[in-house]
């Protein structure tokens, strides 16, 4: 496992997202995964897709239970909101603190970033409170070949297609913020700080891109297939 980090240290945040912490000792990847009860195949596919941006084995991912995928997506949310976002906020605060002439500009940037964060939070909330529970429920029915009346009714009015339509677009603000920093922030002395913020924004954007790919190319198609099967299949209906 230690070799993995030596080869590509940028994987560190991805690895800790699985709940795995440093202090690997001499253990292999498999042993570490066992220790933390992580599915080793899933772990390997995820870190490989982060390591090589062109590698995204959607077929392999689709073979894993959606529960794994959702657990993973949730921990990514946690990472964004509890770590990445506060980090960028602190950097912007710092920028406001040390600048004198451009204070006003940076205050604007802070508000703008805050708007983005609010959108992100709303997005996460909706996924975790509505979409994911729905999917977990769906997968359970599908595997047990039993469908509750409630779910059956829900399927009549709601499908993942609706979520898919609303999905996306929250990255626009992040994109704008990058361009404003790169192109339009007046010249000033705090270059290193600005560079720092920018590189954090780029990293966040990249990570979220990976995250959306997982949702759009793996989770949604799988859910669609299950919805179809549950609608057409003759599953036993539970009267609950």
């Amino acid at each position: 496992m230690a070799d993995v980090i030596h080869m590509d240290f940028t994987l560190l945040p991805t690895i800790s997202r699985f709940g795995i912490s440093l202090g690997y000792g001499e253990k292999t990847v498999e042993e570490i995964c066992q220790k933390y009860s992580v599915n080793v195949d899933f772990f390997l596919e995820v870190i490989n897709s982060f390591h090589d941006k062109n590698y995204f084995p959607e077929k392999k991912f689709r073979a894993f239970s959606l529960k794994y995928i959702i657990d993973y997506l949730k921990s990514a949310h946690k990472f964004y909101l509890e770590y990445k976002v506060p980090k960028i906020e602190r950097l912007i605060e710092k920028l406001i603190e040390v600048s004198d002439l451009e204070k006003q500009t940076f205050l604007l940037l802070k508000n703008f970033f805050q708007e983005y964060v609010n959108e992100l939070k709303l997005h996460v909330k909706r996924e975790e409170e509505e979409v994911y529970p729905y999917i977990i429920n769906l997968e359970k029915s599908f595997l047990e070949k039993k469908i509750t009346k409630k779910l059956q009714e829900k399927l009549q009015v709601y499908t993942i297609g609706q979520y898919q339509k609303e999905h996306g677009n929250i990255e626009e603000k992040l994109f704008d913020l990058k361009n404003i920093l790169i192109k339009y922030v007046p010249m000033q002395k705090n270059n290193n700080l600005c560079n720092n913020i920018l590189s954090e924004l780029f990293k966040l954007e990249e990570d979220i891109k990976e995250h959306s790919e997982m949702e759009e190319r793996v989770m949604i198609p799988q859910v669609k297939a299950m919805e179809k099967a549950l609608k057409n299949g003759k599953f036993e209906v539970e009267e609950i």
Partner: peptide, 22 residues
């Protein structure tokens, strides 16, 4: 031209470039 998509992004742009006043 600007690489800015959202309305609030354009607002920030306009203020930075003194096109409008806050």
């Amino acid at each position: 031209k600007l690489g800015i998509k959202t309305a609030s992004g354009l607002t920030v742009y306009a203020i930075i470039n003194n096109l409008i006043e806050i």
